[in-house]
Simulated assay, not measured.
Amino acid sequence: MKKLITLLFLALVFSCHNQAQTNPKQDAIKNAKPVTVKLENGKAKAYFASGCFWCVEAVYESVKGVDEVINGYAGGHTKNPTYEKSNTGKTGHAEAVEVIYDPKVVSFKTLVDVYFASQNPLQVNGQGPDKGSQYRSILFYQDQTQKQIIDTKKAALAKQLNAKIAAEVYPFQKFWIAEDYHQNYEKLHPENRYIQGVSIPRLKKFQAKMPEVLKEKH
């Protein structure tokens, strides 16, 4: 009986997660016209979701040409998402990062390479121990040029691995900044068990793959 109850609970949880990604409001987000974010002081912004934003923040902040990375939420159909609400899987949002970068130093194309090099591209609805639609992988494009870059690299990786790539491709709509305590998390909490056990190993694995794009110090 306990096993049956557990299975029913898990089915309900995954049903909620799946519903968040397949309802009409979410479909409207996927099919919307992309929003282009203008340059500010010569700096561009790019948006990615790839599991826990603490991990992704640390990865992109180690890349040359990246000035700052902000943690937040994107890809959903609700307004003003919070950590608690997004964790239900019902808002459609995923934990995401805003990457503020100098396009004269690092290209969007390279940022996409960093994205795929810093994750398990085959894991659906999560990265590592973090599972659920709020941790799913999404690349956001702001125009058709960015979409073509993403689609080309995703197709090439699928061919290379002979497998389906889990990352979704969304038109960018809006980025909601996460709570203050989520910002600069890896730098401010180096002794945290999750940072020690998950974020830092993921960062080091990426750094070994793409040493040519790294800042001298991180």
Rank of each mutant, 00 (worst) to 15 (best):
T6M: 13
L7A: 14
L7R: 11
L8T: 12
F9I: 15
A11W: 09
A11Y: 09
A11E: 09
L12F: 14
L12D: 08
V13Y: 09
Q19K: 11
A20W: 03
N23R: 12
Q26P: 07
K30N: 06
K33V: 14
P34E: 03
V35E: 10
V35M: 09
T36H: 12
T36Y: 10
K38V: 09
K38F: 06
N41V: 07
G42W: 03
G42C: 07
K43G: 02
K45W: 02
A46D: 02
A46E: 01
Y47M: 05
Y47E: 02
F48P: 02
S50K: 02
C52I: 00
F53C: 04
F53K: 01
Y60D: 00
S62M: 05
S62F: 02
V63C: 03
G65L: 02
E68K: 14
G72Q: 02
Y73S: 01
G76H: 00
N80W: 08
N80R: 08
T82K: 00
T82W: 01
K85V: 10
S86H: 04
S86F: 01
N87R: 11
K90C: 11
K90W: 11
K90I: 13
T91Q: 02
A96W: 00
V97C: 05
E98K: 00
E98F: 03
Y101V: 02
P103A: 04
S107R: 00
K109Q: 15
T110N: 11
L111Y: 00
V112Q: 01
D113P: 06
S118P: 07
P121H: 09
Q123F: 07
V124M: 12
D130A: 08
D130M: 04
K131R: 15
K131P: 04
Q134F: 05
Y135I: 06
R136T: 08
R136M: 08
S137K: 01
I138V: 15
L139S: 07
Q144P: 05
Q144C: 08
T145Q: 12
Q146E: 15
D151V: 14
T152W: 08
K153I: 05
K153Q: 15
A155Q: 13
A156T: 13
A156H: 10
L157R: 02
A158T: 09
A158D: 07
K164A: 14
K164F: 10
I165M: 06
A166V: 09
E168K: 12
V169P: 01
F172G: 00
K174R: 12
A178E: 00
E179C: 08
D180C: 05
D180V: 07
Y181P: 00
N184G: 06
K187N: 12
K187S: 13
L188Y: 08
L188A: 13
E191Y: 11
N192W: 04
R193T: 13
Y194E: 06
G197V: 05
G197L: 09
V198G: 04
S199A: 14
I200G: 04
P201E: 10
P201K: 09
K204G: 09
K205L: 11
K205Q: 14
Q207K: 13
Q207P: 05
A208C: 10
K209W: 06
P211I: 11
K215F: 09
E216L: 12
E216V: 12
E216S: 13
H218R: 12
